[in-house]
Design a protein around this nucleic acid. Structure first.
Lengths: 215, 215
DNA sequence: GATTGACACGAACATGTGTTCGCAACTATA
DNA sequence: TATAGTTGCGAACACATGTTCGTGTCAATC
């Protein structure tokens, strides 16, 4: 499948990429012909078929603009949009809007490719972290945390918990030990916290972290 | 611009969205007609023009599949694909392939929406972090770091530096102080390292961090 | 030189596809 | 009821577009 492309074929392939990105639709045979100063549509047709054989693209017969790149820069339907619904800070509970399913209510979103993050299912949302209350979970001010909404937690999961006694929401590893709960910071240099089972309330489970470094 | 859509117009709009996502090209008038059991192409044409007036989409006259959604779920060209070119671990220098511009050589990629990360320009790549040598920069094992390739650094930037004496590449904040360099961990609880200016080599600048939490 | 294969050329052909037009059905308003 | 505006219908038209075919060029091979 790693056959060499002729100069013309490489040019055509590149043009298809750019055109599709620019116009959000594939080019026609004649659009390729004119843009690349090719003498005949049949030449384009020939090279398109070559590109099909070499696995670079697919064609739908008798359909206008029936060109489809085999490896799109990033297939649209293979991506996940997660809304950033608010911020999380020490001392404040997480507020999750009722309706997460309506994209039109979303502000900022995070785009994640499943190849990187294996995120599935419902209840996904994101929060912007305020303050340094979670450095022990390797999370800094300004980070965006990806969460899945849930009320319970398995042992060992990192969850956002509301600690009644301290009026604080933090991210900790969760371990049920008899009647109490051990909340273990992700940072190994920090000591765990022990709380009564009914004094904590699981808000959601940590799925990922995204950080932009100021530039 | 917030005019009400008729039932038929809403249906057509929805179909266009789904079709475009499915086939990575907009539908033709007749494809819409057949799929939605509409009696005539002129009806489709009429409603398409209505949708244009209501600001939902644009049309290119006399061009096949000349339909373009005004609010794409996520504009393709408004997104950045960054290749994950390898791993970074304590004791190993960063190896960046020569040609970053050819998408065909990419394996995994990271998708970033500019609204979240303000990343521009060339030389962007990503690395998977191995080991816990960078917990002081709030970076854990398995994280993906976004880097921009560069050989110099401004004061205060977080950069990947190769420390000759320790045969190690780490991420630290960079400060030039006379003939030597102060390398400050991002974690405030850690002490800085001082090295001779010509004993360090800047590999790239940290632009962002992405972490998936095991689930 | 003859043969073969890859690639290019130009001209048609067949049909996919946007557009137009006259007319009818259905509202809402006076 | 009358009138105007919106929407739906069917058919035809014009051209945009994928496809095919015969021919030509060039380099490699025998």
């Amino acid at each position: 499948m790693k056959t060499t492309l002729s100069a013309r074929q490489a040019t055509i392939l590149k043009y298809i990429r750019e055109f599709t990105l620019e116009n959000s639709r594939p080019p026609t045979v004649r659009e390729i012909q004119n843009a690349l100063q090719i003498s005949s549509t049949s030449v384009v047709d020939y090279n398109l078929n070559q590109l099909v054989e070499k696995g670079e693209l697919r064609r739908s017969r008798n359909i206008s603009r029936g060109i489809e790149l085999t490896e799109m820069p990033a297939p649209k339907d293979d991506r996940l949009s997660i809304p950033i619904v608010g911020t999380i800070a020490a001392g404040a509970p997480i507020e999750v809007p009722d309706d997460l399913s309506d994209p039109r209510s979303w502000g900022d979103t995070v785009e994640v490719s499943p190849s990187l993050m294996n995120l599935r299912g419902e209840g996904l949302f994101a929060l912007r972290v305020k303050g340094y209350s979670m450095v022990d979970a390797l999370i800094a001010d300004g980070d965006v945390v990806l969460m899945r909404s849930q009320k319970t937690a398995e042992n060992g999961e990192t969850v956002a918990v509301w600690i009644e006694g301290e009026k604080t929401t933090t991210l900790k590893k969760f371990y049920r030990e008899g009647t109490r709960v051990r909340l273990q910071p992700a940072n190994v240099t920090m000591a765990p916290i022990y709380v009564d089972s009914d004094a904590v309330q699981v808000q959601g489970k940590l799925m990922g972290v995204i950080r932009q470094v100021a530039h």
